[in-house]
Simulated assay, not measured.
Amino acid sequence: MANPVPSKGWTKNISSIASRVYFLLILFQIPLFRVPCRSGMCTTPIHVTSSQLISSEIFPVPVIKALLYPGAVVNGLASNTTIPKWENVLDIYNLTNIKEASAVTDLQRLEVLAGSYFSVAGAFVGILKPGRMSMFGSLLLTWGLVKEGMLGKPANTDPTRSVYVYPTLVIALVCAFSSIKYDLKKATRPAPARPIAKPLMSSSKSKLK
């Protein structure tokens, strides 16, 4: 009779596969949402993060271009079957004059900004060691979009700059939750039985007398 597959084995495989799928969604910049940002309209967490990093000058521009280039290649091949040039990456995402743009747009959407940061960081960290950073970033990002889309905070009267959520965000949420490792064997393990107190030898002898 074949031995059953341990629960820890298949849960580890699921978390690894989910982490890789989530990483590809983030790295190749599959549109997850549409929200106003400093560079115009952002559709991916990397776009939101890059616009903030360039304006704050936290990382060198080549590092940010390296973060954007894989998605730019995928989008270029999908739209007009051409590979964009390295020098034109910032122009494609309207990040050339991002330092002169107003920061009010990002400050009004702190949940989207923070969620994008955690989503991008969690995608890269999850390749090495799956954790909860991707889940936290996706939940924070989703709450920011829901708060603006349903509750109208902040108010937006321009339909061309309205918030929109793509179905791919649901896939990202599922992958973020599935990337967390669960030990079902440990979770379903019964509580250890309490030891039964035995009477002392002296007390048993005193009863016999």
Score class of each variant (00 low, 15 high):
T157L: 04
A172D: 06
N94I: 12
K129Q: 13
G76Q: 06
Y166S: 08
G152M: 05
T96Y: 11
E111P: 09
M135R: 07
V104I: 14
A172K: 04
D91V: 11
P190H: 12
A72L: 06
I98N: 01
S138G: 15
T160I: 04
V112Y: 08
V146R: 03
V146K: 00
L184G: 11
A103V: 05
K153Y: 15
T105I: 14
P195A: 09
V163C: 00
W143Q: 05
K186M: 09
L110M: 13
L145N: 06
W86I: 13
K181L: 03
K153L: 15
K186N: 08
L90K: 04
N156Y: 07
F136V: 14
L90W: 04
Q108S: 08
L139C: 11
A121Q: 13
A121I: 15
A123P: 04
K181P: 00
E111C: 07
K153P: 03
V170F: 10
S102P: 07
W143L: 10
K185V: 11
T105Y: 03
T81Q: 08
S134E: 02
E87V: 15
T160W: 00
E87I: 14
A78L: 07
I98E: 08
V170E: 03
G152C: 14
S179H: 07
V74Y: 14
T82Y: 06
G76Y: 05
M133C: 13
S79Q: 06
T188V: 04
E148T: 07
A172Q: 05
A155D: 13
P195C: 03
S134G: 13
L169K: 12
S138H: 12
A121V: 15
Y182D: 02
C175Y: 00
A78H: 01
L140A: 13
A114Q: 03
G152I: 02
T157Q: 04
S116Y: 07
P84L: 02
K186D: 10
G76R: 02
R189D: 03
K186G: 05
R194M: 10
I83D: 03
Y164I: 07
D158A: 01
G144H: 07
G144Y: 08
A72M: 01
S179E: 04
T142G: 14
F118P: 01
S134I: 10
E111L: 10
L107H: 06
A155V: 14
S79R: 06
S102A: 02
S178G: 11
W86K: 12
D91P: 11
M135G: 04
K185A: 15
A101M: 11
P195K: 01
A78S: 03
K147P: 12
M150I: 03
G122K: 14
S102Q: 08
S138W: 07
V120L: 14
G115I: 06
P84H: 01
V165Q: 11
P167D: 02
